[in-house]
Design a protein around this nucleic acid. Structure first.
Length: 596
RNA sequence: UGGGCCGUCGACUAAUGGUAGGUCAAGUGCCUUUGGAGCACUUUGUCUAGGUUCGAAUCCUAGCGGCCCAGCCA
């Protein structure tokens, strides 16, 4: 494989993959390659802890790590950082593998576990004890915290800090054998209790945990801490660039200290900024709470920012990858607008999603001059962005459904859709003109009557007459009943992490984040659509088939709505009550209207 | 208040001492059998104050602001 991107210095990228701007990590790698720091190797790793489902923040890291290796002809390992048996499960391991694959990345045969290295790590601990660099401490967790000092005051040395090497060796061996209770002793590195970096104040290397590990079972009852496992795992795998998020910056001196004391291969840790998205929570802990407290239907609820969730929502791996490359990489603490993510699904789905007609909130339309019992097949284009997608037939008949939003008895200014006396086009069918309406007891329009122009078949009138709008429709007799799930942001505030005193983050949960439309109508061509298939429902948005679908009834998720200029016009009018978009009629007359 | 990191259009990100550019958003126009898509155009930015320099977003100093750290979590 070539290590050089042929498009790199030739101006605009024509490969189809959007070229991401460079970033500081790429520059570091480039420089290391130039100086031969790692003999020309680039080897990264993606190291999740299998204690939950992956989310968009992980997607950023996955794209970074695999992307870097791919760009420079290197390799990426998948490594599970499974050093805390009390939180980790095989279910999570499986979902993580699945998610990485779905995103389109391949670790080939390089799947590793920190638990693979427990034996080696134990040997290294022994080595540090023998060198007088580690000791067994009998202090309680509370006492250790107390001795550690504070941000502004130095810590105090533990009374056990200067135990003889032999005693440390014996005690550590007995810890390993399971002679002591959880929490009774730890192994600590002997560094500097006065260090301004709290991580260097004799950090804990091993703790006692009598718990079953998802892979090693009960073989071990002492487990290495992150700091004692991560750098060494990178070292064993001969990782060159160990990238992680900003909060580990303060751990870098410790990362370096361990590999230096041990005298082993030294990878370099580089930190980048974590992903933040407006209206979204990207914290495994809080996402777990949402699942456990049943605020959502599971880890793959389409409202969740998990990889599983956005997949079920209908996002494509390409959209996620394009998003990750577009947001760039830096050390700034920023928050990306959710609209950016949505842009990239729309962009991708616009090119590939077949168009189809569906009516979410049906309003019955009767074409009075269309023969009863007659129906005909209209030709419809599957994807105007892609000629190779071809056409399909859609049945038309006398009784149709249109969207309730597409009819207004009192049309406001700039409203171009159907209203009494007005002619519009039914997409791929005929021009129709509204002649009258039928209302129920509450004065609501329940049926619209129209006449059609037989000469406008296909959607154009031979006399060159123009209409202001084209609306979608479904033939009532042929329609498929379907359930459609509409989603809004899970949270109502831009930063759901910010809460007032005593408030849980769940206080900002959006009560309307899920709306189930149970009586939507679909054109019949969708019969038998497979799970995960994605479509554009014309004029409405992108939708995908949910796995809750059955042979009798399809269930769709709305991935994202189409950009909606009309809603924007309406909102602007609301904001400026001066020049309103209310009725074309006089205000007094409008106020007497039966509806609202 | 100790230490670490970071401040560029509304948001994200480039410019590596030499033309402040791109994407998203917003807006205007064109086009349109999706009020979609597309096309064209437009608006807004270097945290502040000093200094070094022919020249500073970039280097230095001092302020100001933000994020992270006191788990036997990762």
């Amino acid at each position: 494989m070539s290590t050089v991107d042929p498009n790199e210095e030739k101006g605009p990228d024509t490969s189809g993959t959007p070229s991401a701007p460079s970033n500081f990590i790429r520059e570091i790698v480039r420089e290391d390659l130039k100086t031969g720091k790692y003999e020309g190797r680039v080897h990264t790793r993606f190291p999740p802890e299998p204690n939950g489902y992956l989310h968009l923040g992980h997607a950023k890291s996955i794209c970074l790590n695999f992307g870097l290796a791919k760009e420079f002809g290197g390799k990426t390992n998948l490594r599970f950082d499974d050093t805390n048996p009390s939180k980790e499960e095989t279910e999570y391991v499986e979902s993580i593998k699945d998610n990485v694959r779905w995103l389109g990345f391949d670790w080939e045969d390089r799947i590793f576990y920190a638990s693979d290295y427990f034996g080696q790590l134990y040997e290294w601990a022994l080595q540090l004890i023998k060198a007088g660099k580690a000791y067994v401490d009998d202090l309680t967790a509370h006492e250790i915290r107390h001795y550690r000092g504070t941000l502004t005051e130095p810590g105090k040395e533990s009374p056990y800090r200067n135990r003889p090497v032999d005693e440390n060796l014996e005690l550590f061996e007995r810890m390993r054998k399971g002679e002591f209770a959880d929490g009774s002793r730890v192994l600590r590195a002997k560094i500097d209790m006065a260090s301004p970096n709290l991580n260097m104040r004799d950090p804990v290397m091993y703790r006692i945990v009598h718990a079953e590990h998802h892979r090693t079972g009960n073989k071990w009852c002492i487990y290495p801490m992150y700091d004692f496992a991560h750098g060494q795992s990178d070292s064993i795998e001969r990782i060159t660039h160990s990238v992680c998020t900003l909060e580990f910056e303060d751990h870098r001196p410790l990362y370096n200290w361990f590999v230096e004391q041990l005298g082993i291969y030294h990878p370099q840790q580089i930190e980048f900024d974590r992903l933040n998205l407006t209206y979204t929570l990207l914290s495994k802990r809080k996402l777990l709470t949402l699942v456990e407290e049943r605020h959502v239907r599971g880890w793959d609820d389409p409202r969740m920012p998990t990889i599983a969730g956005i997949r079920r929502r209908g996002y494509t791996p390409e959209a996620v990858r394009n998003f990750c490359s577009a947001i760039g990489l830096s050390k700034t603490n920023g928050t990306i607008e959710l609209g950016m993510l949505e842009h990239f699904v729309r962009e991708d789905l616009n090119k590939r999603a077949p168009r189809v007609m569906a009516v979410l909130r049906p309003l019955k339309v009767v074409i009075d001059n269309y023969p009863e019992g007659q129906s005909e097949m209209m030709d419809a284009v599957n994807n105007p962005e892609d000629a190779s997608a071809g056409t399909r037939k859609v049945p038309f008949s006398r009784v149709l459904y249109i969207e309730q939003d597409d009819f207004r008895e009192d049309p406001p200014k700039q409203y171009y859709r159907l209203s009494p006396g007005r002619e519009v086009r039914l997409r791929y069918a005929y021009f129709v003109t509204c002649t009258n309406v039928v209302k129920n007891d509450r004065g609501e329009v329940i049926e619209v009557h129209c006449t059609y122009d037989p000469a406008s078949r296909g959607g154009n009138s031979p006399d060159g007459r123009k209409v202001k709008s084209t609306i979608h429709w479904v033939s009532a007799a042929h329609a498929l009943d379907t359930e459609v799930r509409l989603y809004e942001n899970l949270f109502t505030t831009e930063d759901p992490n910010k809460t007032e005193d005593g408030q849980e983050f769940t206080a900002h949960l959006n009560p309307h984040s899920l709306e189930v439309v149970s009586k939507a109508k679909l054109e019949p061509s969708l019969q038998g659509a497979p799970i995960e298939a994605r479509y554009q429902f014309e004029r409405l948005g992108y939708f995908c088939v949910d796995r809750d679908s059955t042979a009798e009834k399809l269930v769709f998720n709305r991935t994202v709505a189409l950009k909606d200029t009309w809603t924007k016009i309406e909102k602007k009018a609301e904001a400026k009550p001066g020049k309103t978009i209310t009725s074309e009629k006089k205000p007094s007359e409008f106020s007497k209207a039966p509806r609202s």
